[in-house]
Design a protein around this nucleic acid. Sequence first.
DNA 1: AACGCATATGACAACGCTGCCATCATACCC
DNA 2: GGGTATGATGGCAGCGTTGTCATATGCGTT
Lengths: 350, 350
Amino acid sequence: MITVKPSDRTAAPKPASIYDVAKRAGVSIKTVSRVVNRQSNVSDATREKVMEAVDALSYRPNIFARGLASERSFLIGLLYDNPSAGYIAAMQVGVLTRCREEGYHLIVESLDAANPNIGRQVHSLVTESSLHGVILTAPLCDSQAVIDALNRANCPFVRIAPEKHLPGASDVRIDDFKAAYDMTAYLIGLGHRRIGFIKGHPGHGAAQARFAGYRSALEHAGLPLEEELCVQGFFSYQSGLEAGEKLLTLKNRPTAIFAGNDDMAAAVLACSQRFNLKIPHDLSVAGFDDSLVAQVVSPRLTTCRQPIREMAEAAVSMLIQRSANDGPVERQLDHELVVRESTVPPPGAT
Amino acid sequence: MITVKPSDRTAAPKPASIYDVAKRAGVSIKTVSRVVNRQSNVSDATREKVMEAVDALSYRPNIFARGLASERSFLIGLLYDNPSAGYIAAMQVGVLTRCREEGYHLIVESLDAANPNIGRQVHSLVTESSLHGVILTAPLCDSQAVIDALNRANCPFVRIAPEKHLPGASDVRIDDFKAAYDMTAYLIGLGHRRIGFIKGHPGHGAAQARFAGYRSALEHAGLPLEEELCVQGFFSYQSGLEAGEKLLTLKNRPTAIFAGNDDMAAAVLACSQRFNLKIPHDLSVAGFDDSLVAQVVSPRLTTCRQPIREMAEAAVSMLIQRSANDGPVERQLDHELVVRESTVPPPGAT
DNA sequence: AACGCATATGACAACGCTGCCATCATACCC
DNA sequence: GGGTATGATGGCAGCGTTGTCATATGCGTT
């Protein structure tokens, strides 16, 4: 019942080669190569002829021949180890967008950051397919072994939203400090005076920066920093549950809780049910990241969006423009406060 | 402040080539090639010598040279167009696992299924990099243009959980009929007698199969199929909201609702709040897919899991084993009923 | 001893492209 | 008018591997 037309299968579908294009355009293959690679020293007339032939034959250079003959592989590697699904998906979209625009292809590899052989794995992966550059996401981007291997292979790389700072690395990130500052200021603006904060994993640079932003905003508003309102979390749902419990059992409980990421904020939501608190009426909750969770919990979370897609695009651009011998670079993109239903003025506010 | 040790950058990191291995093992490069490709007609002694050299030098064949010289590219393509994030991530993990095991690499491309040029895009992508095979996910896997292009390029492909049936395609899927049957039977087993069903998008084979499974389970249990309990949805959250509304305003409302996918089930959860129904106490809700949503809503959804990872692995295996000239193949994997907190016996049950 | 046959190994071209160098024409300078 | 910079183009080797074919070796048969 399911069949294939034999004709579909028999034809040998050889794509057009550079020879075909050269013949059709009446030039040498070398000239075709020049045009295709946008090199100079080709007359406009010739370029046009070649372009026409390229279009007519739907010619696309063979990536293997290209990779073999030149140092340029037109291959970007995306390396990750088991990150959040939404995160990697959003990133990949951004990466692919830019790759397509630039005629690059994307090779994806998932690695185990805990594997002691990780450095060797990365090195052989990179050299064997002479990747043009690689993009690293958490937690791989926080592994010194990976960075070292990449440097050893002289392979440019960019880390996206790394958590720790690592010497010799190029990064794309947002300003976590300012983002947390903005969120806190927004909550203060709503009228909140007692704002709880759930810290992220200590040792993660981003977690620290966010906490610092929170403190700074309080300070600027002339609000005291209260010890009991700042509890330690570890970015996990579970840790958010425990932290939320701590905050909500306080005699003088906060009117708003700002969690270091969305997972922990979602945990606070779940937790508050047990305290019979209506969100946002009795308690405002804010998260960070604008991950998928933020949009599917009820009420949806006010949070701070990292422009993952744009960050990924920026990373590819950096990779394509830069050479391995440039020094490390840091690039910061704008975050965005996403106000949803989980935050309102505190109870009793005018 | 951020610096790179110069030594890290200067070394030219040429990976070992087949020549190095041959020299070290004292054989010709051809013999090395034979060993590496697991071909026959190599003596055990020679094989061992070569293997040792390969290990010592961490030799890995250059993918470009390989792809250029042979028909085999060791490249698997994963094509998709904007699917759910969790879905694509889970799939990718499975694909990567098998690829790694078999020494293949993964190239990912995101395409626009609606683009009229899609066929040409796919064709040139496949031929230019002579992909060994490609894996298609929804909605690309339901595009006849894509299938045609692949067939034209003589490129093997496997579709994962396709929604429509398409002639000449190889598929990996679960038994949607049986899965929906099982879920319905489970609800009946809990004591439910009035079970609402929210249908998926008409025209999607899976949606139809699920509805058929639901009906069949009712029938086997001697329960009547009631028109008013079966409402049309379209797999979207929004459609689930509307469908839920319809079901919950019924005079004789169901004690359980089985939605054709998790998104619609999550919508029923949200919807039931407005009717002041406590889930699961007043109403049991079941979804389908075990997508991320199912785990983050509260209460977490009872649902039916598609083993996406395993399906992806199976797809890669099929691609590696099969040649383009084999006919299309269908492979079915086991689903799994995931019972969580959203389903309990109906109110008033013993 | 001569032959056939299977098994093991190597020599060499080819894959499609780019890098390097050579060539040729043109334009400009003193 | 001879010399020299500059732009446009082509010839050819070589990238690291595999496919094809040739060769060598060992063994059983007659």
